[in-house]
Design a protein around this nucleic acid. Structure first.
Lengths: 225, 225
DNA sequence: TATGCAATGTGATGCATATCACAAAATAAT
DNA sequence: ATTATTTTGTGATATGCATCACATTGCATA
């Protein structure tokens, strides 16, 4: 059985808490889908009836601000997507878009709720997840608003390196316009700062590939602007 | 019995889902405290072992940013405080401070967890709460970073009027320096903008009392800067 | 009532960065 | 291969706002 959640290799910490019966429930009530880079996973303003599990790939969560789109965070697999927007309200309050090829599973909300009711450990993990996210979003916001753009750009590069790709060399999954949305600045500033970093020997760029040459400098810039 | 949670008049939506046995558990395991304006409720960096219930009063959640303190949100009773910071990590990731006289109950984390395990409805409400908060914090952050200060200041006044005090006339519970932390600007700008609003006949200030004279203008400023 | 400290008002200056306006390059579509 | 379209680079200009530097007012404590 292709859809067997029991044998799925991509489980979140919460999902690994589930017993076999819950996993079978999931198996029987989910829809697997392969997505291409750029495909929309959740669209702000539309109705939401499913929790989505990002099995593989990388996605961006973004929200329409008063003037620009803002990328709230990058999420890589495995992870649940859209819990806040699905539980909190009937219509999606933000968008999620694949920034790489990805595989997702659509899980019916009712099934998900049932699993919550029947698995304390799962629920604990989930709540813990929510809590971490909320605190994280507070911190992120404080940084965004208070740091200069150079600092935020350094943070973004470090985040890609440390949390997303776990390597000093990686291919930027976003265009400069998208980076601007992530860092809260203009496309032009991203271009300038990236060149600046390269000129200072902090990074090396080959097309969209970035190699971090001097992580210490990045950390300093992150701290001091 | 003074501490009887059964008869407590200040219940959140989640708490009102609890059965009598859970409420009695709460009664036996909480500590009530009266606080004065300015008193610290949760302090960033210290250990957290309690969930806190804000029974009456108004509090600010604030976090140390890279340069300034940032007020993340205002919370009025009844509401739980510090769930994210208590569940997510052993040490508090943000601070909470009373901005009016207040009453709080300290609830042992273990007891709170037990209540979660035993009350599905309570847990659902709680999760719903988390979800709404997360989405709200995304939106707030997008506004903060994208709007001009006039717009953010208008938002703050509208928030006080609509959500906190539910009146067009209210006494500002924050100093201008604190308002600056809430709106992400400098103390001086707050002063200037407040005078500007008064000069334009949008608000009337008598000491720290604000009367909104022209809500439509505020909404326009909120939208267009 | 006097004295001190905290909270506010207000001008002058400087700077980070958005915006505009293109040119150039890279990708995608035909 | 040739357009068409999207991405990127780069200068010039404008502006919102922080910062500094005080003056002033309000409030608390002796």
């Amino acid at each position: 059985m292709l859809n067997d959640c029991r044998n799925c290799l991509f489980k979140t910490k919460a999902t690994s808490m589930l017993g076999e019966s819950s996993l079978d429930q999931l198996s029987l009530n989910h829809l697997e889908l392969k997505l291409k880079k750029g495909d929309s996973i959740i669209k702000q303003g539309t109705y939401s009836t499913n929790v989505i599990f990002l099995r593989t790939g990388l996605a961006k969560i973004h929200i329409a601000g008063p003037y620009n789109e803002q990328i709230v965070k990058m999420v890589n697999a495995p992870s649940y997507l859209g819990l806040p927007t699905t539980f909190g309200s009937k219509i999606n309050q933000y968008s999620v878009t694949a920034v790489s090829d990805a595989e997702v599973c659509f899980i019916d909300l009712e099934v998900f709720l049932k699993i919550i009711d029947e698995n304390k450990e799962f629920t604990h993990e989930l709540i813990q997840e929510f809590c971490k996210n909320e605190v994280e979003s507070f911190r992120r916001c404080a940084n965004r608003t208070q740091k200069l753009i150079r600092g935020n750009m350094a943070d973004a590069i470090l985040e890609f390196s440390d949390n997303i790709f776990k390597s000093d060399t990686f291919v930027l999954p976003l265009s400069q316009a998208e980076l601007a949305n992530l860092v809260d600045t203009s496309r032009e500033s991203i271009s300038r700062i990236l060149n600046e970093f390269e000129g200072d020997g902090i990074i090396k760029m080959t097309g969209k590939q970035i190699e971090i040459l001097n992580k210490k400098s990045l950390l300093l810039i992150s701290q001091n602007g």
